[in-house]
Computed example of a mutant assay.
Amino acid sequence: MLDILLHDGDIHEIRMARGPVNALDIGLVEALREAIVGAPANGARGIVLSGAQGMFSAGVDVPALLQRDRAGVRDFWNAFFALCGALATSPVPTVAAITGHSPAGGAVISLFCDYRVMAHGVYKIGLNEVQVGLSVPEPIQFAMRRILGGYRTERLLVAGAMVDAEQAHAIGLVDELATVEQVVTRATLWLADLMKLPPKAMLRTREIARADLVAVWGDTSNLLDPGFIDDFFAEETQGVLLALVARLKAKH
């Protein structure tokens, strides 16, 4: 489900390896959180989060989520929020090595990293939740506003828009583009340059700069709006999600 690779300079790469598309079920979400929380204790001075070439993560495993009852759905989203919180509060810098397409949950995870390197070309990224009948909770909107500003975030989220890598770079949703083969390399080089700086000064400045994110995401235990769970089970959302699953099955 996860591969942990070590790079020079105490950089740990956490690579999602849940075939075929790194769909986020509760097992992968919890494994990611545990790996991110545990990496610094295992000597990591920086973390790269990556996926398969061509697909960073296809987002939430909708077929699996639809099989869960209300308590199970709530448990999944609380686990997902805890994963985002672990990235937000990581004591070491993190980079999302976006190795391909990154819709919905994949894009959300990247928002909490310090830096985002994406494969250029045909790949797309975006929070397309509205397209599949889901609203975007305020804490996630906050994380995106922090990067893109209020108006651009509103336009993208309300439309459920997916943008290609070049547009994502132009608007600041990702920081750097590379060939799909070089995304992880560029991510590790960015971290390596950061680690050449005086560590106490760099980490303290980073802590100050990310204090607004930590203020919202430092404790995720009560961050999930119960209304979001109600919306998930609403007739409109269930209908759209079931239709999505039917289309996915028809392709295979």
Results as ranks from 00 to 15, higher is better:
D3W: 13
L5A: 11
L5C: 11
D10T: 00
E13W: 00
I14T: 07
R15I: 00
R18I: 00
R18F: 01
G19R: 13
N22C: 05
A23E: 11
L28M: 10
E30A: 13
E30W: 00
E30G: 06
A31Q: 13
L32D: 00
G43V: 06
R45T: 00
I47K: 10
G51I: 01
A52V: 11
G54R: 03
M55I: 14
M55W: 03
G59E: 10
D61E: 09
D61I: 11
P63F: 03
A64V: 12
A64Q: 13
A64T: 13
A64R: 13
Q67H: 09
Q67V: 00
G72D: 08
D75Q: 13
F76S: 05
W77K: 08
N78L: 09
F80E: 02
F81I: 00
F81N: 04
A82T: 07
L83I: 00
C84N: 11
G85Q: 05
A86Y: 07
A88Y: 05
S90A: 14
A96W: 03
G100S: 06
H101Y: 07
S102Q: 06
S102F: 02
V108R: 00
L111V: 01
C113H: 08
Y115C: 03
R116P: 03
M118Q: 10
M118N: 03
M118E: 04
A119L: 01
V122N: 13
K124D: 15
L127N: 08
E129T: 02
P139Q: 06
P139L: 02
M144H: 04
R145H: 08
R146A: 09
G149M: 04
Y151I: 13
T153C: 06
M162N: 10
M162P: 01
M162T: 09
V163A: 01
A165R: 08
E166Q: 14
Q167T: 15
V174N: 01
D175I: 06
D175R: 05
L177D: 03
T179D: 15
Q182C: 08
T185Q: 12
R186K: 14
R186H: 13
A187C: 11
T188K: 09
L189F: 09
L191G: 02
L194G: 12
L197V: 12
A201E: 13
E207T: 15
A211P: 01
D212Q: 11
D212T: 11
L213K: 08
V214R: 15
T220A: 10
S221L: 02
N222C: 10
N222K: 15
L223N: 07
F228I: 06
D231F: 07
D231H: 14
F232R: 03
F233H: 09
A234T: 05
A234P: 02
V240A: 11
A243I: 00
L248R: 14
K251F: 01
